[in-house]
């Protein structure tokens, strides 16, 4: 998948996954590494940026005998951003689908 294209959709995917429930950076890596083909060094800086922009926040969460882990959740600004990106994605994907469908019909 093209690098620039992936970069565009990664933010949307991250926000969506976090909207489904608090996630650690490793949870996100596991969810996204294969389908999108990104590594931790791509996910982590984006998480930090989204947090510094106030779209994410984090809490330390302890589970079982393991040390506490950082879990990210969406802030109100993050939820708004997710809605905006989803809307953009749907409009774009509809437009592209139509375009591709139209071309296939022609062929």
């Amino acid at each position: 998948m093209d690098a620039q294209f992936k970069k565009g959709v990664l933010e949307l995917c991250l926000l969506q996954l976090i909207a489904e429930g608090p996630k650690t950076p490793f949870d996100l890596l596991e969810a996204l590494a294969e389908p999108i083909g990104v590594n931790v060094n791509t996910i982590y800086p984006l998480l930090r940026r989204l947090e510094s922009e106030g779209r994410l926040t984090h809490q330390k969460h302890r589970e079982g005998p393991h040390p506490p882990r950082k879990q990210f959740t969406l802030t109100e600004a993050g939820e708004e951003r997710l809605l905006y990106l989803k809307d953009m994605w749907r409009r774009l994907s509809d437009a592209v689908e139509q375009l591709l469908g139209g071309h296939e019909d022609e062929g």
């Binding site: 650690t24 490793f26 890596l29 931790v40 982590y44 040390p67 882990r69 950082k70």
Partner: peptide, 13 residues
């Protein structure tokens, strides 16, 4: 600390 946590999680999984 974040990277250390990720390494620990990876080794646990």
């Amino acid at each position: 600390e974040d990277y250390r946590e990720m390494i620990s999680e990876a080794s646990l999984s």
